[in-house]
Design a binder for these strands. Structure first.
Lengths: 203, 203
DNA sequence: TTTTTTTATTGAACACCGTTCATTATATTT
DNA sequence: AAATATAATGAACGGTGTTCAATAAAAAAA
């Protein structure tokens, strides 16, 4: 009676095929500019088929967001736990900036795009591995506070500061509000800027 | 021969009527969800008429963005030049945060939305009063650096830090990525967070 | 193997969107 | 009053996400 199992497998495979095509198109052309029709055409199926595997475009986005968070968490594994905590924090920031620059469209989907709040309201515990990344940052900031290596007493406030700072410069850049900085290499500029920032709040 | 003058006046008035309706709708329903048809219907004109006064939807957005920047610059006039520079900087941040919270949709149009880059590419010197706001911040940071009241040596880097930080926390909040902070009053939380930030980089 | 039932796929149709442009209505000039 | 110039219209175009009756394919039953 392996038919049911095979069918389930096939369903997952089909989901994978759709997600693969959608990811590629979202990442090159952006979420808004990628139409369901175009995805369907790319995988050589009809429009309706996609709605057999995903309830709507937002759900596809959600899966791709989770892929992005997973990738990011993976990147964080490169960090060396033996490093001095301030250096560790700097390296964390560099990886975040690097991720954003190397995967601008992913970053957009994950942190800037408007859609997901509709998604959030749909099911409650939706952020998934997005929360893992935040909890990781929080744990780093807790260590900074405990070791009194930072001019902050509340790890939450410190996390908001670090994340807010990183997100701010990146979001301004991705959404083209940084034309006033005449830097050629924005990535390096941001890394330098983040290091200065960390140095200034570190003790 | 006052006919030409009257016609010009009427043209401007019509532009005003369209902009007023568009502003109200953009600010309540958002840019994407407001259709040209809906604007036309609101002012009781046909779709085509709008295209007699604005070349496209993006141009309407641009006018509204400028209104937003003008409002923001006006808000900054509340600042007291006699204040201690660090306190002055804090107050600047409070006004920025207040503006963002009181005019979330304006803020979205001005700093987060994707459209404008197409606009930017259309005409070169497009930012207008957006640049005024940035230059103002830059001048404040220059004073901070000159008076050695801040742990930064480059005013540009310091401006990026302040603006990036403010934008980061606000953008995360507006685009609903702040669910992990269980604060009830986010505005106060952000103001507190900004003050702590300024204190930590001030000397 | 043939028939019936279940499952998977299709694509036209719906209600929207921004934008254009030939046609019509209004205002100005001759 | 007729001719010209300006302003306003709204159907039409090609696009969007989404739905659903009709069809094709696969599995189960006879």
């Amino acid at each position: 009676m392996g038919i049911k199992e095979r069918k389930e497998r096939e369903k997952l495979e089909m989901k994978e095929i759709i997600l693969k095509a959608a990811t590629e198109m979202f990442l090159t052309q952006g979420y808004e500019k990628t139409s369901i029709r175009a995805i369907a055409s790319k995988i050589e199926y009809s429009v309706g088929t996609i709605y057999l595997y995903f309830q709507d475009k937002t759900e596809i986005l959600h899966y791709i967001m989770q892929q992005g968070f997973a990738q990011m968490n993976k990147d964080f594994e490169k960090l060396d736990t033996n490093d001095d905590i301030i250096f560790y924090l700097k390296r964390l920031g560099h990886i975040y900036i690097e991720f954003a620059f190397d995967n601008q469209e992913y970053y957009d989907l994950m942190f800037i795009i408007k859609k997901p709040l509709e998604l959030i309201n749909r099911k409650k515990e939706q952020w998934g591995s997005g929360l893992i990344a935040y909890d990781f940052l929080l744990s780093v900031m807790k260590r900074c506070v405990e070791q009194k290596r930072i001019r902050y007493e509340d790890p939450e406030l410190a996390s908001l500061a670090i994340w807010g700072y990183l997100h701010g410069i990146i979001a301004l850049h991705i959404r083209d509000r940084c034309k006033m900085f005449e830097e050629v290499n924005m990535k390096d500029f941001f890394i330098r800027s983040f290091d200065t920032f960390v140095d200034s709040i570190a003790t």
